[in-house]
Write a protein that binds this DNA or RNA. Sequence first.
DNA 1: GCAGTATGTGAGTAATTACTCGCTTTGGAT
DNA 2: ATCCAAAGCGAGTAATTACTCACATACTGC
Lengths: 198, 198
Amino acid sequence: MDVLDLRKRPSQQRSARTMDVVLEAAAQVLEAGGLGAFNTNAVAARAGVSIGSIYQYFPGKDAVMAALIRLEAARFEAELARALEAAADLPLAQAVERLVALAVASQTARPNLARILDLEERRLGLEAEVTIRSQTTIGQLTQFLARHDVPDPQVAAGDLQNLVRGMVDGALHADPHDLTRRIARAAMGYLSGQAGDP
Amino acid sequence: MDVLDLRKRPSQQRSARTMDVVLEAAAQVLEAGGLGAFNTNAVAARAGVSIGSIYQYFPGKDAVMAALIRLEAARFEAELARALEAAADLPLAQAVERLVALAVASQTARPNLARILDLEERRLGLEAEVTIRSQTTIGQLTQFLARHDVPDPQVAAGDLQNLVRGMVDGALHADPHDLTRRIARAAMGYLSGQAGDP
DNA sequence: GCAGTATGTGAGTAATTACTCGCTTTGGAT
DNA sequence: ATCCAAAGCGAGTAATTACTCACATACTGC
């Protein structure tokens, strides 16, 4: 039984609108004001609900954070799944470019939020439910890479995810298209250099 | 006149030991407990000085943070400068491997700290003194890459820094030596793929 | 209408925390 | 020894904030 769990949702089939509104407000507060501005009052105000309502849906502040992390993870994973399906029959280079473009678009929408969620995921995920966000993302990527005969696909998947994340994080004010090209180049470079060069 | 400046240091030639102690304590608190544990009382306690003393050397909490960011930046830049000098006559691939090893070692020592400083730098550096930490680092790298006839060395320097940072951040529990090899491969892959493939 | 329940409210509370200020201690010059 | 300024101290203060709870309102089946 985790403090971050939402099992205590008062009824089974709630309108869920309030919850969504709160999470969206939390995202906006984090994006606009950073971790320091993320407090229950600010989130409630932005969501247009009372503080009490927040505590009807979430056992505490950290639970809001955790729910937001899971939400964003789920969104990205859904997009990734679609993109992977669409790119299934493409040659590796083109497939990689598409996936990178997806990652760039995803992070560019709310640059600060992504960074904060990264950091908070580590703080909250204290060993349990390790890396909420990347678990299945990595899984999907691993399978994709394995199909393209990339050696050590699991490690490669993790490396690529980190490579992309780092480059997107660092260069958010660049032109997205150009950035995508450079990141794709780095990713392909990594994959080409894979394994036994003699 | 910035709130983060330390110009108001009470005397011109202070022992500076207290200041160092405070900064080291701040680093330890951040590494151990994250941003949430970073408060003036905790830092003072860990440093073995009183709260008052902190405020004799720093105009406020954020100034401690800023000073720590500058300190770590200066340390890394010094190491980088030495490494670049030592690697000046090496072929590109070997030079890159050495630089990557340095970055890995640097971040591995205090993994959480590095991430937090990244985030805080953005929060504090609001447009002024843009990217305290990477300014001269990038400069040094740019010159190095230019000497090796890398096209667009400035962009490449930034990309490489972000690529390395991302990969190190994401895989801190891996074996440092293996990690270094993989990152170096990615970096070389990026550099090889540079410019006009037809 | 009405009973009963689900949902929403927001003033209040207890805890935390950045920072102040009047005081004590230290150390060096005479 | 005496003085003085520099350095250090830490209880106190005002502000912030996570969270509670007694109450109000909306909704549902009758």
